[in-house]
Design a protein around this nucleic acid. Sequence first.
RNA 1: AGAGGAAUGGCAGAGUGGUCGAAUGCGGCGGUCUUGAAAACCGUUGUACCGCGAGGUACCGGGGGUUCGAAUCCCUCUUCCUCUGCCA
Length: 426
Amino acid sequence: MLQVNNIQENLDKFVEGLGKRGIQNAKDLLNEVIDLDDQRKKTQQELDEVKAKSNQLAKQIGQLFKEGKKDEAEAAKAETAELKEKDKALSEQMSFIQDQLLNKLYNIPNIPNPIVPAGKSEDDNEVVKVDDSATPTLGEDAKPHWDLISEYDIIDFELGNKVTGAGFPFYKGAGARMVRAMINYFLDEAQKAGYVEVQTPILINEDSGYGTGQLPDKEGQMYGITDSNLFLIPTAEVPITNIYRDVIVNEAELPIKHVGYTPCFRREAGSWGAHVRGLNRLHQFDKVEIVQIANPDKSYELLDEMVAHVEKLVKSLGLPYRILRLCGGDLGFTSAITYDFEVYSAAQKKWLEVSSVSNFETYQANRLKLRYKNADNKKQLAHTLNGSALAVPRILAAILENNQTPEGIKVPEVLQPYTGMSMITK
RNA sequence: AGAGGAAUGGCAGAGUGGUCGAAUGCGGCGGUCUUGAAAACCGUUGUACCGCGAGGUACCGGGGGUUCGAAUCCCUCUUCCUCUGCCA
């Protein structure tokens, strides 16, 4: 979340930034925050004063008892009643103000980086690179992947329906092997690039949800385990980044780089429709995620590095792709800047988002209380970054469609050592 | 799952109602000594919030309570350890 001090100092910049996200009344909203923070300070001063008096009095009473001046002590005791009442009232006021302030801050998104284009929807995203050199020329009879998967019997949606529900497919045979191969390939490549692999829980608690910003903003998008107050992760970003909640690292340790594979669970409430077929949108899918904890001075360099890593992966799979810089209106709640990678799925003639690489600057770190000690031994908020590298099902969809031949589906060369096959056949 | 025990500063570990933000040791940092290092010795060393400052407030696993006053007493939750049971 945003830091009140920063808001106060750069009000215009913040108003402008939120405006880019299409928030009209930003100025009023931010002024309310500043006002609440002032109230908070004022109330704390009053409360501290009352407490100081009580502490003083309590010491005196102790002293009086020790000296055997019982009457005086009893008299002093009577004085404390009033202070106690004041204390109680001010404490209540304090927590009320703090709740309000926090609630406001939780619901204000991050300020976009200046180079983020203004815009309302995905139509306003800026295409920063297109490399469609790998686009295949498919015949008239080219099939979308949902036809191919039944033809080759590698993914079973019906079975998923039966056992769980829509959006929870079974991968079978060569399909399962492809998934496993991609996960291993992505993990290995990340490791080569210096990311330390972690295997995380796939259930997270509320604190973690708040830490990375899924709560309270996206509660409806996560599956909740209501009887234990836990949530299924929508992305490995949550458990991995939350490793560093309430942590102070040494500057020399930065950047910290992690990679993790997890299944991801998303309710996708409201986004289900006719345009979503096959592997395009699922409730459960596999994803390899890269995460960095960075020095603010270096975070944009590292963002570029992450983008380059993802680009290399997509390219190595032989898929046509493009890179988008998301506009303010399409930007995630906690992100300051996001680059989306899309691959072209040639039979359905659609761009599929397979990666999202973001810099959150201090927005998550402030919630996480994730700091580093700089050279002067001062504690500063770190920057957090993450990116998908990559999301499996849509990559699979693109491979199936783009690589279909009369003989079968060609397995990208880089995956062959992992699949042990060069072709998916009937 | 049952019985018992425990949770204190970076770590170890004292502290059972006031003088305790907390002894002591280790570690860290600074210094003396040394050609340099070690050893020894001296000093220093938690976090957050409020305040221009002096200073104040809060924090001894979390939450609540008793009390003029709680690390210390009570309730509750969580976690860990030991023993018994079960189990991949």
